[in-house]
Design a protein around this nucleic acid. Structure first.
Lengths: 176, 176
DNA sequence: GTTTTTAAGTCAGCCTTGTTGACATATCTC
DNA sequence: GAGATATGTCAACAAGGCTGACTTAAAAAC
């Protein structure tokens, strides 16, 4: 299919030589650690969400609405990169159960501005704290410089074209 | 539901005071960066897997079988933490399409020892290299010490009880 | 040597969360 | 007024989780 790699090459000692070894030797350690870390990272909220009969999709929606009050549907779709139909399924539930409120825009009455209700903010905060606890416990064992380094690394992992967008979204500068 | 947090408290300036501020102020930056970084991290393989009509589940199975030749079903289930039925669905396909081979154990003939075929190893390597490229590009922009720091951080994020297990799995010491 | 336990496989059905495609409605823009 | 835009909705499908029940073969226990 893609004969770049002769089959007989052992996975452990690649034959690539010179400067691009770094790019060609699989970084199995980081690949696997990222997998396991992410799994445990999302497992904390899962347990709580179960009690509300919500899933991870609900969590993501609630999280970003809580973080950016007044977010429109289009903006939320852009962040989550899912279809309108997928979003609507979970958003509808969150609205019906009173965790999110949808307000018709004033400038543009076609738009809907989403806001977490007090109940929604409460749940969002509860979940964020759970994840924060894990994040901070991990950082506590390390150099004080680690937090900046880790967030710099995570940012650098993101697609170049999105990086500025994510940076704005994460570190502020929302024009609402 | 859980009245720990009065609703009126603004998310940005929590009223918690003293030493536990770190534990109570949500680390929104890391939470969100982790989300976006992981999304892009798995998106590279997804594009290739599509060509084979495989999904992420296939990738995970192939990855760990490739990394630990001779893995048994029980060991694989323990790593992936999914049910036998879920595993079987994708494993069967990988075997039928010739990416993985299942050999009856010699010491214990009830067991199956899984091995990636040359075709399987080829695909696994191709996918690992894609992810490695992203990982290394991100690291290239940073301090040379960063790699150890990041892997230390990711390891610290993992559930305490599993940490030793994952460490063995990622950094070697397999007794097979 | 029979019984019990274990490893693996399988059938059936369900849930969540993603997808596509088609279409409706209200509102804004030109 | 015509067309574009933002949202909402119906229907059907797919991937990949899950539970529960049951089979088979082989090992272990007795």
């Amino acid at each position: 299919m893609d004969p770049t790699v002769p089959e007989a090459i052992p996975v452990i000692r690649p034959r690539t030589s010179g400067a691009d070894v770094l790019a060609e030797t699989p970084a199995y350690d980081l690949i696997e650690l990222f997998f396991f870390a992410y799994r445990d990272f999302v497992s904390d909220p899962d347990r709580i969400l179960d009690e509300y009969n919500f899933g991870r999709a609900h969590h993501r929606v609630l999280h970003f609405v809580d973080r950016q009050p007044g977010l429109t549907i289009a903006e939320l779709l852009d962040i989550l990169r899912i279809t309108k139909q997928s979003l609507n399924r979970v958003l509808k539930e969150l609205i019906e159960k009173g965790f999110i409120e949808s307000r018709t825009g004033t400038a543009d009455r076609r738009q809907r501005h989403l806001h977490a209700t007090p109940q929604g903010r409460h749940l969002a905060l509860k979940l964020a704290r759970l994840q924060t606890r894990r994040i901070m416990h991990a950082l506590a064992e390390m150099d004080p410089e680690a937090k900046n380094l880790v967030s710099g690394y995570l940012l650098a992992l993101i697609d170049q074209d999105d990086r500025a967008h994510v940076q704005r979204l994460v570190f502020g500068e929302k024009e609402t």
